[in-house]
Amino acid sequence: MPPATVAVVEDNPDFAAILETVLNLWGYRVERYDTLRAARATLLRRPPAMLILDGQLPDGDGYHFYQELRRNAATRNLPILLLSVSDDVYQIARAASDRDAQLVVALKPIPLEDIQRIVTAAVRP
Rank of each mutant, 00 (worst) to 15 (best):
M1A: 14
M1Y: 04
P2I: 15
P2R: 15
P3D: 12
A4Q: 12
V6E: 07
A7S: 15
V9T: 10
V9Q: 05
N12R: 09
N12V: 14
N12P: 01
P13G: 14
D14L: 15
D14G: 13
D14A: 15
F15M: 13
A16C: 12
E20S: 15
V22T: 10
V22L: 11
V22E: 09
V22D: 03
L23W: 05
L25R: 05
L25A: 12
L25P: 00
W26G: 00
G27P: 00
Y28V: 06
R29Q: 09
V30P: 01
E31V: 08
E31N: 08
R32V: 14
R32P: 00
R32D: 00
R32S: 14
Y33H: 10
Y33M: 07
D34S: 12
T35Y: 03
R37P: 00
R37V: 06
A39D: 02
R40H: 14
R40F: 07
T42L: 05
T42R: 10
L43I: 15
L43W: 04
L44C: 07
R45H: 04
P48F: 07
A49P: 00
A49S: 13
M50E: 01
M50I: 03
M50V: 10
L51Y: 02
L53E: 01
D54S: 10
G55I: 02
Q56A: 11
Q56Y: 00
Q56V: 08
L57P: 00
L57N: 01
P58E: 06
P58Y: 03
D59C: 08
G60H: 05
G60C: 09
G60D: 06
D61M: 12
G62T: 07
Y63R: 12
Y63W: 08
H64D: 13
H64T: 12
F65L: 09
Y66R: 02
Q67G: 04
Q67T: 10
Q67N: 05
E68D: 12
E68Q: 14
E68C: 02
N72K: 04
R76C: 10
N77L: 15
L81R: 05
L81W: 01
L82K: 03
L83Y: 04
S84G: 07
V85Y: 00
S86Y: 05
S86V: 10
D88C: 02
Y90N: 10
Y90A: 14
Q91W: 04
I92W: 06
I92H: 04
R94A: 14
A95Y: 01
A95G: 03
A96H: 08
A96C: 11
D98K: 06
R99N: 06
R99D: 08
D100Y: 05
D100Q: 09
Q102H: 12
Q102I: 06
Q102C: 14
L103S: 11
L103P: 01
V104S: 11
V104C: 09
V104N: 06
V105I: 09
V105G: 08
A106R: 14
A106H: 09
A106I: 03
L107T: 05
L107F: 01
P109Q: 14
I110E: 07
P111Q: 15
L112A: 11
L112D: 04
L112F: 11
E113C: 03
D114W: 07
D114C: 10
D114V: 15
R117T: 13
R117P: 00
R117L: 15
I118P: 01
V119M: 09
V119P: 00
V119G: 03
V119Y: 02
V119K: 02
T120F: 11
A121K: 10
A122D: 01
A122M: 07
A122F: 09
R124T: 13
R124W: 11
R124C: 13
R124G: 08
P125A: 15
